[in-house]
Amino acid sequence: MNMGADPGGVGAPIIELEGVVKSFGPVSVLKGVDLAAYPGKVTALVGDNGAGKSTLIKGLAGVQPYDDGVVRFDGDPITLHTPRDAARLGIEVVYQDLALCDNLDIVQNMFLGREETGLGTFDEGRMEKEASDTLRSLSVRTVKSVRQKVASLSGGQRQTVAIARAVLKRARVVILDEPTAALGVAQTEQVLHLVQRLAEQGVAVIIISHNLADVFEVADHINVLYLGQMVASLDAKQTTRDDVVGYITGTKTQQGANA
């Protein structure tokens, strides 16, 4: 699973947005947003409700294409018009409502829509092996059997399966929408762990969260959206919780802070 990236160094971004614009009729939701996600780094995207986080993500997923602006992948300009465009590049989104089938087991969920076949029929053994290898590469310890039905899993385990599904096919960018929103303390810890593990494998992780404690625990960069504009792009180690809250609520601007 390791992409051979260099998690220690800064490197070039895998994906880079520049001046992205999106409006719904007269309502302008994204007003020229820049964002970059680096291999092996966790990039957090924070902002209040209505700041445009979801719209930004839907554009990256190819679900709602941007109206204007440049998207660069490995430095090359690309277009993201359909979910398939995103999937082909290795951009995977784990949505807040996890989109798993309760009646299927872990392997079946991880391979849903991209089953391994041989002679026209499922190669269950190969799928089971790959699913198990993926979970192991993420150091997942909480799942007893990959043939458990998802209905029998806890919230944290479900999140784990959803994330493992996203990275199964060598994803390069994984976008996590509120991965800890519905979880208890221990399970949140497990999922954050998983996020770090993803980054160690060279994946560019973009995490959306309302929980600043979580964000500070895992993120390398923190980007703040405020009313459709990226008002701050910060190094997580050189900023504070109060600063970030200030940017989110609009009582602070990066220019002001620098002045």
Partner: peptide, 13 residues
């Protein structure tokens, strides 16, 4: 899959 969660199936392609 559709019987279990049609939306999940749709998102999975």
């Amino acid at each position: 899959a559709i019987g279990g969660n049609a939306e999940a199936a749709r998102r999975a392609g």
